[in-house]
Amino acid sequence: MEQVDLFVSCLVDLFEPATGRAAVAVMERRGAQVGFPLGQTCCGQFAYNAGHWPEAWAMAKNLLAALDAPPTPGPDRGERATVGLSGSCVAMVREEYPKLLDWAADQPGWDSSWRVRHARVAGRLWELSQWLNRAALAPVADEDTTTTRVALHTGCHMRRVLGAGADAAAVLAALRVRVATPEDEDQCCGFGGTYAMTEPKISTALADDKLTALRATQADAMVSCDWGCLLHLAGRLSRTGVAWPVLHLAELVDLADRGELAPTQLARAGRFAREVP
């Protein structure tokens, strides 16, 4: 049985824990024994991107310690995989932490063992769709689900920093879910971490363009591997009174596994899109 640790991200933990629960179900269904390193909070990306590196480094150390801690019980973590539920956070740990480590190495109190711990953690860390795509999963659902179409939004860090832009589509194809690709699919949705808060006008203009492109696919739902993008886009749908199911990939895969991909079932699971008054 494959041992997999879950890295849920702060947004899933705090705001969308159903995504984490769906991920556990999906992974267990594929034969994984799922563990949850309890010390995890946030990867620190929001602070890192905004230039507040001492804070980012404090959070990074906490996450590295949590993901590197020996499991109880279970085999040594070196033989385990860690699966993250956000392409952006996984990209942060794998691709940006080395830059943060280089900076930290010049700060007081530096301990070079952080590099070793980072190498261990990053070496076994995957984003969920990467893990699913690697796991050569056969569709669990018996039912032919080809009538369901979802519009896929791939986050920029997932696509460009992590280089995992194609995995989610492959996973959905294996589950016989039809994927609609929006126009300008590689353009940013405008979330950008704290950018969504500090520059709401530009951020919202970008969200509206992205939603127009996604909605133009006339898909049954929108799906992504990042709750950063999704909270921003769904939050905009909610504020403008547009109802359209919004789901994380983990939830869509869970529904597909259970053969519950009818539009009404997607609408029930896809939350945070209020009915048009």
């Binding site: 705001f15 969504a196 709401p200 939050g235």
Partner: peptide, 15 residues
């Protein structure tokens, strides 16, 4: 810091 978000978007509460 978070005020800007809510000028144009909602958020779910902490679960």
């Amino acid at each position: 810091l978070w005020a800007g978000w809510f000028e144009t978007r909602d958020m779910p509460p902490i679960a």
